[in-house]
Design a protein around this nucleic acid. Structure first.
Lengths: 142, 142
DNA sequence: AATAGCTTGCAACTTTATGGCATTATGTTG
DNA sequence: CAACATAATGCCATAAAGTTGCAAGCTATT
C-alpha cells in the first residue's frame, strides 16, 4: 500500500534537517508518520517490505537512531524489552504510553496530563517521568 | 563478603514454599534480600561470584524465574532492556521505579502513591499502571 | 561533471535470554 | 538409615535484539 502523502510529508520534514535525504529515511519516516501506534523495529521492517522498500536491518537501526537524534522520532522502551518508535510531532512528548495486552500495540497518549503529585523520597532528583499503562485498547474491547 | 543473616532469612523464606531448597536459590534470594536496589542478572552473578558461590548462568535465570513465580521476587524491565529483580516483601508492589542516570541503578519506591488522576481517552480499559522515574539518586548527588 | 564524505550493505560479533537432555542432588518413603 | 522418584543443575546449542568495522555506493555541493 503506497502512501504518497506521507512520503511527501516525510520529505519535507527531512529537508529541515542538515542530513541527507535518502530512500531509507524517507521510507522509515513515512511509515512512522502513517502509523497509528508506536512501531517496533520488526514491524517497521515488515511494513517497508510490504511497500516494496528494502533495506538492511542495520540501515533501519541507524535510520531510526538518526531520526531520534534529529528530533523527528521518539524512542520508547516497551514492557517486552524492544524499542518502539513513533514520529515526533512538534509538541513535546508527554511520555505516556498505553500497551494493549490483546493486540500488543503501543499507543501514545499525547493528551494525558500526568497531574500526579510525586511525594518523592528526599534526595532523589527527578529528570524524567515515564508512565506505562497496560490494558485493553478501544479496538480490542469486547 | 558473607552475609549469614540474609542467608538465614533466605532459608526461612524458601521453607515456606513447596520447592526444594538449593544452594543456588539460597544464594540468589540472599543476595536479593541484601541488595538496596533492583539487581540485573549480571550484577547478581557478579555478587554471587564474590561470595564464593558459583552456578551456571542458566541456573541463575531459572532460579530467578522460580523466585518470581513463588512471589518471593519481583521482575521489572528497565530502560536498558534487561530484567532486574528485587526481593518481594509481603506488601503488594507499587510498580514505581527510579532509575538513576549516573550509577544506572534501579530503586523501588514502595511508598510512592500514584495519586494521579488519569483522564484516559474513552475506550481504553486500564489494567495496570507502571511509573518509571529517571534522574539522580541520593548517592550520586553532587 | 567531479569530488568529498555521509550512508548503506554485508559480515562478523556481542549481549540477553531460552530450550534440550544427561547428570546431580534434594526430600521422601520404606 | 538406605534407596528411590523427581526436581534442579550444568553444559550444550540456539534464538532474538542490537552493535561494530569496513569497503562500496550515493547525496549534495562546488
Amino acid at each position: 500500500m503506497n502512501t504518497p502523502h506521507d512520503e511527501q510529508a516525510a520529505r519535507e520534514l527531512l529537508q529541515q534537517s542538515s542530513g541527507r535525504i535518502t530512500p531509507a529515511r524517507i521510507g522509515v519516516l513515512g511509515i512512522l508518520l502513517e502509523a497509528k501506534a508506536a512501531l517496533s523495529h520488526q514491524e517497521i521492517e515488515q511494513l517497508a517490505t510490504q511497500q516494496g522498500l528494502s533495506f538492511d536491518r542495520v540501515t533501519l537501526y541507524r535510520a531510526l537512531d538518526w531520526l531520534v537524534e534529529q528530533g523527528m522520532a521518539h524512542k520508547i522502551s516497551g514492557a517486552d524489552r524492544t524499542w518502539r518508535y513513533n514520529a515526533q510531532t512538534g509538541t513535546a512528548h508527554q511520555h505516556a504510553h498505553f500497551h494493549c495486552n490483546h493486540c500488543q500495540q503501543v499507543f501514545c497518549l499525547e493528551n494525558l496530563q500526568p497531574a500526579f503529585m510525586l511525594s518523592l523520597p528526599p534526595g532523589y532528583q527527578l529528570e524524567q517521568v515515564e508512565v506505562n499503562l497496560q490494558g485493553t485498547c478501544p479496538a480490542c474491547q469486547p
